[in-house]
């Protein structure tokens, strides 16, 4: 099966580097799946899971909180603002963060920063989604 090189780096460290057969992520205008031989592409990444199918048939899930994705012949690069292995996300913390963000949104006080709260909610929701996706593949 054809494969391609994949590099995921965040501002803090290199998260993943290896051969993969498929990558799916959440792009700026929707979900996208990249297979080997994809045309050169440059897109933004929205908070959400990045899902890799490795060469040896294993699956890996990462969480990215935004960044850029570049496809070159035989190479996919994800420059994430922050990225985590989905295993490393603390699910309880993600859920709490989500609830709190939702609560803040519901209260919607006058001098309240609506945009920030919404961003936080999206972030927390995306983290939780990554965990759920990871679970699916574990089973």
């Amino acid at each position: 099966m054809a494969d391609m090189q994949c590099e995921i780096v965040s501002a803090e460290k290199e998260i993943f580097s290896g051969r993969i057969t498929k990558l799916s992520a959440v792009g700026t205008i929707g979900e996208l799946g990249i297979l080997p031989g994809h045309a050169p592409l440059l897109t933004g990444v929205r908070p959400g899971p990045i899902h890799l199918s490795l060469e040896n048939g294993e699956e890996e899930v990462f969480f990215a909180s935004g960044g850029f994705l570049e496809v070159q012949p035989g190479l996919v690069t994800v420059l994430a603002d922050t990225a985590l292995r989905a295993d490393d996300i603390d699910e309880a913390a993600a859920i709490t963060a989500r609830e709190e963000a939702q609560k803040a949104l519901d209260e919607n006080a006058s001098e309240f920063d609506y945009g920030l709260a919404q961003a936080r909610l999206a972030d927390a929701a995306a983290q939780q989604r990554s965990i759920e996706e990871l679970r699916k593949y574990r089973r």
Binding site: G27, I29, L32, A39, P40, L41, L42, T43, G44, F68
Partner: peptide, 20 residues
Amino acid sequence: RWDYIYEPDARQLIDGLVKR
């Protein structure tokens, strides 16, 4: 000669990327 496919559009992406 080649070019990327840009999503959503080139200006926004390139601006952001260059600054970064």
